[in-house]
Simulated scan of single mutants.
Amino acid sequence: MSRVRVLAAALLACALVPAVPVHAQQTAAAAIETAPPLDPALVEKARPIAAAILPEGTMAKIMGPMMQKMMGPMMDSVGKMPIRDLLKAGGVDPTGAEAMKPATIDQIMAIVDPAYHQRIAVMTTSMFPAIGNFMTQFEPDMREGMAEAFAGRYSAAELDNILAFLRTPTGSKFGSGFMELAADPHYISRVQAMMPKLIAAMPTIMKEPADALAKLPKPRAYKDLSQAERNRLAELLGIDPKKMKP
């Protein structure tokens, strides 16, 4: 049952916050290392743009009251999904999962954890504001990263045009509310509608990497390691080799 909870939470997190795949993060880091140096003058021009798009307090606003309002409908949607669909998305043998009846998370949790929805409410009330407060301290870094990204994409004239727009009443409204779109109920409702289709497609999506992984050597067990490798492993972990058991 814990696996179902974890999977549901993971899917929910994907819907709430646009996720960046690990390989994309690695690609971005490599691109920064090889990219030509940024023009400091362009970065300076871009900073007011970043400040307009990510004004102070944005993360607390997004992750606080706004996200709390979205969490209830999102969890209701996840709760109505058949557990067998979630299990298939999590890698369980589709044949075995299909043999299950289409019981939903809500139906199961009503039996094993009658306080399930209250727990979710408690987590929502405490967790999201805490995340917002935590993320607030990183807003200056986020703004600087935005400024650098803009400086690498736009010319001085283009940056001037963008800033001029953001300084108009319409531009100011657009800029200050842009980051909040991720928590907008219209956007969230579209993401919610996508989730059942995503879950149904996961076995197909995972087939290609699963086939590729099957061709790789299997990880070795402790019993397969040489004594030198066992000693090195113990050294890395700071454990007495004699206390490490196969």
Rank of each mutant, 00 (worst) to 15 (best):
R119Q: 11
A130G: 07
P209M: 07
P73W: 07
G152H: 09
M244P: 08
L7F: 11
A13T: 09
M202C: 12
G91T: 01
G171M: 05
D211G: 04
A151I: 04
D76L: 08
V22Y: 14
V112P: 04
R5P: 00
M66I: 06
I188E: 02
A50N: 07
M75Q: 12
D141N: 12
P55F: 01
P241Y: 11
D106S: 08
P196I: 05
L86G: 03
T124A: 09
R230F: 08
G175D: 07
I108K: 13
I53K: 01
Y222F: 15
P114E: 03
E33Y: 04
M1G: 06
L166A: 03
A147Q: 05
A183P: 09
M206V: 04
E33Q: 11
L87Q: 05
M194E: 01
I239E: 04
A19V: 08
N231W: 13
S77T: 12
P18S: 00
A28F: 12
C14D: 07
L16W: 09
P246E: 10
I62F: 06
P219L: 00
K245Q: 14
K215R: 13
E144R: 13
L166R: 01
R232G: 05
G72V: 14
A9C: 08
F174A: 11
A212G: 02
E144K: 14
P48M: 03
T34D: 05
L166P: 00
T104Q: 06
I32D: 11
A97D: 07
A50Q: 04
S2G: 11
A193I: 05
T95V: 14
I199L: 15
P37Q: 10
D106E: 10
R153M: 12
D85M: 13
Q118S: 11
I105K: 03
K197Q: 11
P73R: 08
P94F: 02
A201P: 10
P219Y: 02
I131Q: 10
E235D: 14
T125K: 14
P185E: 02
D39M: 03
E56K: 12
Q192L: 15
I105E: 00
I105N: 02
G145V: 08
K207Y: 00
P48S: 02
E208Q: 12
P48W: 02
S226C: 08
L225A: 01
P114F: 05
A31M: 12
R84I: 01
A8R: 05
V112I: 13
A30R: 15
A97H: 06
M59G: 01
L54Q: 04
L213H: 07
K80N: 15
P129W: 06
M74C: 14
S226M: 05
E148G: 12
A8T: 05
P209F: 10
